[in-house]
Design a protein around this nucleic acid. Structure first.
Lengths: 212, 212
DNA sequence: TATTGAATTTTTGTATACATTTTCTCTTGT
DNA sequence: ACAAGAGAAAATGTATACAAAAATTCAATA
């Protein structure tokens, strides 16, 4: 694979973001430039660039001359993100069936589910794979902006998902239900397929996340 | 109004963004740090911070050690943004009627339309007001993330709108149709109200934007 | 002991210097 | 005239120095 040369700022961005996603930098935690620069082994400028990016994405919160913190996850955040997902994925799912591509997408989704099964023992990797699966559904729109919404909110989704799993979301049974989802898609059974997505994923996910 | 102290970076961000939105910095135009710093009268660091933010928002495109340009608007961009708007505003509009708040929203929208009429001779201001009107519709979700989607894409919407108007979108007739929209909302006539939104706004807007 | 407040330290914001890469220019050779 | 390439100029990336604001410390006082 081609190794694309990237700036220190981009490296910093990836590392900090990863630490936020894996809860290494916990929600609400205070970050300082000094700490980040020493951890990353680079000067302040690239680190500050990374911070600006994460700020724009909403993962870091800060004010003029005030300390910065990792964005906390509130109940409202959880409701909002699930509402947005239901809205987009609901329409996407409809479109998949309406355009007669349910079979095709059943295979595409299956690929992602295979990945989910393979990493079922690593919560973070499983959540990442799960989100990728949902992004596959939304890919029917062929709309980069919608994809970007997912990428931007991916961070929140993953952090939330980690909460969900911690609070009882059962990975094996979720994976089992996804097998059913794929079945229904193969049979072109929109109603049952969507019911699984809706109930098993959105409702259970949200409710577990809300327990925090 | 309280004047919140803001950093040079924030000031730079606002000014550069404004120049992009008003097409002062035209789509595709190459920007250099030297030019921006001399125009803004500040050192490179705050300017670079602003650039990072605009990059994250997608308004500026750049690569490692390569020059940066103002994001161009392609036909695909136009299709994508209108698809996203139809999706979100379509659902929002339904929700407004379903929750029996059509009257209430007719007044809220009317306020925005008044503003549109007041600035009908300034294309940029009119576009801005128009977008605010659409954001009012979507406000039914009470979802900050959805609002943020609009804010992030607002830039594109405005730049596109400027194209639309240039290419024949007729401001007075649009304003007239909005009066009708409000009427239908008062009468709780979902079908006719949505038809205006759909046809007059999305289709005409998109088609005119596509002419470029 | 609790509290106030000045001095110190820490932290973020800004400017500048230096490094690396790219782009332009102009010469040289065919 | 044109292509190639060395060298200069310009642009972006990185590090450091300095400024301003905020947070902390700690002694003096009630």
């Amino acid at each position: 694979m081609e190794v694309k040369k990237q700036s220190l700022a981009d490296q910093a961005y990836e590392k900090i973001k990863n630490n936020i996603l894996t809860l290494t930098y916990a929600p609400g935690m205070t970050l300082t430039e000094a700490m980040l620069t020493s951890e990353l082994g680079m000067s302040r400028n690239p680190v500050r660039a990374a911070i600006r990016m994460l700020q724009t994405e909403g993962l870091i919160v800060s004010n003029y001359y005030k300390s910065m913190t990792v964005k906390d996850i509130t109940d409202k955040d959880i409701y909002e993100i699930y509402q947005l997902r239901e809205l987009l994925e609901g329409e996407a799912f409809q479109l998949i069936f309406k355009s007669g591509r349910a079979q095709e997408y059943s295979y595409r989704i299956e690929e992602k589910v295979v990945r989910m099964n393979a990493v079922a023992d690593d919560i973070y990797e499983w959540e990442l794979a799960d989100t990728k699966m949902h992004m596959e559904i939304v890919s029917i729109f062929d709309n980069d902006r919608i994809n970007r919404i997912y990428e931007t909110n991916l961070s929140e989704l993953i952090r939330m998902g980690l909460y969900s799993v911690r609070n009882g979301m059962h990975i094996p049974s979720t994976n089992a239900n996804l097998k059913l989802l794929i079945e229904h898609m193969r049979n072109n059974d929109y109603k049952r397929a969507y019911e699984i997505l809706q109930k098993d994923h959105f409702e259970t996910g949200r409710d577990n996340a809300l327990k925090k």
